[in-house]
């Protein structure tokens, strides 16, 4: 499990992506996906650019992770269950469902999302008992140092 210094390092990377999103006129959310201590995929919200309201940071990063698996010749079904996701804002209900479907085990997030958070704020998709709907995943409470920044 990542120590506090690592968590902050990855969360700052996610924050940089969130700032990049803001600079492009997107909702400022960024995330990174870490596999064996390496950031192997990252993304920020691209809803306005794509005119597709589902292109959240997590969705972009998932697309990259799948491409990366293909590129390096790894089986996504072996990579996904040991990936950690660091995202500046609590995954929404849609993304929480997506992360379950992918069996991503651990999510660290910066601030809660009271409008449509799917990891405890509005619904608890990450922990609900849903048979044959991926894996429940663990969410770490907001990283305190980040709340001020996010």
């Amino acid at each position: 499990m990542a120590d506090q210094g690592e968590i902050e390092k990855y969360m700052y990377s996610a924050l940089d992506l969130a700032r990049a999103a803001l600079a492009k006129g997107e909702v400022p959310v960024g995330c990174v996906m870490v596999y064996q201590g390496q950031i192997v995929a990252q993304g920020h919200n691209r809803v306005n650019e794509s005119k597709n309201a589902t292109v959240h940071a997590e969705m972009v990063a998932v697309g990259q992770l799948l491409e990366w698996c293909m590129k390096v010749g790894l089986d996504k079904n072996e990579v996904l269950p040991i990936v950690q996701l660091y995202v500046t804002c609590e995954p929404c209900i849609m993304c929480a469902g997506a992360l379950r479907l992918l069996s991503i085990p651990v999510v660290w997030y910066g601030c809660p999302n009271p409008r449509f958070g799917g990891c405890g704020s509005v619904l608890s998709v990450h922990s609900d008992r849903l048979e044959s709907y991926g894996q429940q995943f663990k969410v770490h409470p907001p990283v305190c140092v980040m709340i001020r920044v996010c």
Binding site: A53, I93, M94, L123, Y133
Partner: peptide, 26 residues
């Protein structure tokens, strides 16, 4: 499913017509 149902909220859809219920339907 819950992912798709929320995607439709984000997309501001007006009405949803579906055929068959599903155990993971949201």
């Amino acid at each position: 499913c819950i992912m798709c149902a929320m995607a439709l909220v984000h997309s501001r859809i007006r009405r949803v017509f579906y055929g068959a219920p599903h155990p993971n339907g949201a």
